[in-house]
Each structure stands twice: as structure tokens, then as C-alpha cells.
Design a protein around this nucleic acid. Structure first.
Lengths: 107, 107
DNA sequence: CCGATAGATTGATGACTGTCGATTAGAACT
DNA sequence: AGTTCTAATCGACAGTCATCAATCTATCGG
């Protein structure tokens, strides 16, 4: 029987020229990490395990709408996921997506 | 004696909130990979081992100036390096930079 | 020297993006 | 109900970016 491979399993950018569709999805994730502010936000969230938006605004030195915008971009790229808890949203990193990115850069 | 660590050695984004300067440099590399066309170009170069710009234009389906622009961005991000050989430029991926990116995403 | 080829640069244009102030939506606690 | 607090949304603006046609530079072959 045919083994079905997801993109996270196999697809290294280094082995062969990647397909167009794959490039689009991967590039979205890389682009999400491609802004210094967003990368720092992601780092804060990932290293904290979990944190809410309100803990990000002051350390990052940007306005609340800006932080909200960036968390949305990160979430749409699949890098973080948000769990609503009362008035708060608890953000956390998505390990599977990180694995996919690492795999894409691995030989 | 003090052990001096370069950024490539240690700095995972997942361990602690990354410093501002580090974020800027890392984000530049991620941003370079954050465009589908550029990601495909990088994939072509890296998987080929070495190739010249003229081999990229037709498969990527973009104009020559556009390809030239993208290779420049990738080179400035440290992801590829170009060796001039007569009329050609031989592009190749920079493994150390890839290691740095993978390390940044690794726990 | 001349024509041909590879690649970089310039200039222009349309699209996208990061940022913020103001506002809105929803939730909790009097 | 009213207040306070978190977060999302909207609208606007300045800046950046991807793209291409045209041009320029440099190199090779004859």
C-alpha cells in the first residue's frame, strides 16, 4: 500500500527544487518569522510555554493593536495557537510547525 | 577562560526571549526565505549544489532582473554565496547559515 | 575590434506591510 | 446595570517590496 507522506515528513528544501504549493506554505511561515518584532514575540511565547497578549505589549514596546496584529499573523502561519480563557488568550507555540520548518532546512 | 559563543552555537528562539540584535539578524534570514519565489530559488540552488543565474530564470518563470534582485537578497542574508566565473556567477548555499537557522528553531 | 551573452543597475509602478489612534466586542467583578 | 479590563477590528498613513522594461557593465569568441 502507498505510504502517504505529509509535507512535514519529507520535504527538505535542500534535496530537490520544492514544488510551488509547498513553497507558498513554507514561505508564509518563514515570512511570519521574518519580522524582528514578530520573531521576538514568537520567542517570548515559545520560551514562556504559554502567555497572554497582555504580557507581551509592554516588553515588546509596541501598541496593543500592533501586538494583536502580529499574533494574528503568527497564528495564520500556524506557528502559534491561541486558547481563549475568559478575558485572556493564552498563546503557545505549535511544535509540529517548528518541526516542519526545521525539516525543510535539514539535509 | 571565558568561552566565547557565536550566535550560531547557542541561540534557540525557544529557550529564552531573544535579544533585539539577534532578532534583527535572524529575521533578515527568515524574511529572505519568506517569499515563495525566493524560497524556490534557494531550493534550486541548494539542491543543485551549484548553479548560475542563467539556469534559474527560465524555470522560475520570472524576468532576469527579478532573479538578480532575489539572489542579491538571499546573498545579503547570508544564505547563498556567489563565485564569479567569467561571465557566470556560480551560486551555492551557505551551510553554516542553514545550521544557524535550524539551531534557532531547535529545542 | 565587434557582436553576443551573463548579470547588475536604474526607474517606475502597483501591491503589500508595520504601525498607531480610535473604536468595538466580550468577559468578569462589583 | 455599570465599570473595568483584554483583545480584536477599523481606518489611515508612511514605508517597503516584488516586478518588469530599459539600460549598462563586463566577459568571451571570432
Amino acid at each position: 500500500m502507498k505510504k502517504s507522506l505529509t509535507m512535514a515528513d519529507c520535504c527538505s528544501v535542500l534535496v530537490e527544487p520544492i514544488a510551488d504549493a509547498h513553497a507558498t506554505e513554507l514561505a508564509q511561515a518563514f515570512a511570519a518569522l521574518g519580522d524582528p518584532v514578530r520573531l521576538r514575540l514568537f520567542s517570548m511565547i515559545a520560551s514562556a510555554g504559554t502567555c497572554c497578549s497582555c504580557d507581551l505589549v509592554e516588553p515588546i514596546g509596541k501598541s496593543q493593536p500592533t501586538v494583536s496584529h502580529h499574533t494574528k499573523v503568527l497564528a495564520e502561519a500556524g506557528l502559534i495557537t491561541g486558547e481563549k480563557a475568559g478575558r485572556w488568550v493564552n498563546w503557545s507555540a505549535v511544535p509540529a510547525k517548528l518541526d516542519e520548518l526545521r525539516a525543510a532546512l535539514a539535509s
